[in-house]
Amino acid sequence: RSVQAESLTTAQWWLVALATSALLLAAVHFTFRNGKATLLSLIAPATGAVAVLGASGLRGHGEVEALVMFSASMLAVALLVLALKPELPRMKAAARSGETYEAPKWKTGLYGVLTVAFAVTVAFVLL
């Protein structure tokens, strides 16, 4: 581990993980302005925690490494949700007219690549 990850205690990394989870919930709420969507977004941190902690345990990573990966993932997804906010008016207009709107494939692909790159970069820098 690098100095950056070790500069915080495990308890502090748990707080960072909780904060990034809350940031994801806030991003979903701000973007969609829908209580049901916000409630459903609780699935992401729960699923992410199981996936990251489980995979880290199988690979022999420590708790801090798992928390860093989890936090980077939650932050990346929150930024992805915020990046999609400009597409929402088009989606709503299409839904009102009975059509289905899909963001251009290049945009969704670019958002996906940037999200993964961001999460990997943050985890790499911290670990």
Rank of each mutant, 00 (worst) to 15 (best):
E87V: 09
T10N: 03
S21C: 12
L88E: 11
T115W: 05
S41A: 15
W106P: 03
L84M: 14
S7I: 00
M91D: 03
Y101F: 15
L82I: 12
L126M: 15
K36I: 12
V52Y: 08
M69A: 14
V64T: 10
L110P: 01
A95P: 01
A123N: 06
V116H: 02
K92T: 02
V125I: 07
A93E: 12
A37P: 00
K85S: 09
A37E: 15
M69H: 04
L58P: 02
V28N: 03
G98W: 07
A5E: 08
L42C: 10
V28F: 07
P104T: 07
Q12C: 03
L79H: 06
V116L: 14
K85A: 13
Y111P: 00
L18Q: 02
L39P: 00
L84C: 06
T47R: 07
V113Y: 04
Y111G: 00
A49S: 09
E6G: 15
L88M: 15
L80M: 11
K105A: 14
E65R: 09
Q4H: 10
A93V: 01
R59H: 05
S71Y: 10
A51G: 12
K36P: 00
L67I: 07
L127G: 12
E102D: 10
A49V: 10
K85R: 15
A123C: 05
A83W: 13
E65G: 03
R59F: 09
E65I: 07
V28E: 06
A46S: 03
A93S: 06
E102N: 11
W106A: 13
F124K: 13
V81M: 01
A66H: 05
V28G: 06
L15Q: 08
A72Q: 07
A17C: 07
V28P: 03
W13E: 03
A94C: 02
L67H: 05
L18E: 01
A93T: 08
V3T: 11
R33S: 06
E65D: 14
A22K: 04
L75P: 05
K107Y: 10
A83K: 12
A94Y: 02
A95V: 06
M91R: 06
T108R: 14
Q4M: 09
T20W: 09
T20F: 02
E65P: 02
P104M: 09
V68R: 00
T20Y: 02
Y101H: 11
A103V: 13
A5C: 04
L110I: 04
E99T: 15
T100L: 11
V122C: 08
E63D: 07
V116I: 15
Q4C: 04
T100S: 14
L79R: 13
V120Q: 02
E63Q: 12
P89K: 13
A51M: 09
A83Q: 08
A72H: 01
F124T: 11
F30N: 03
W14G: 01
R90Y: 09
T9G: 13
A5V: 14
L79P: 04
R96C: 01
S56G: 14
E102Y: 08
T10H: 01
L23R: 11
S97D: 15
V122N: 00
V52A: 12
S2I: 05
A78W: 00
P89W: 10
L40F: 14
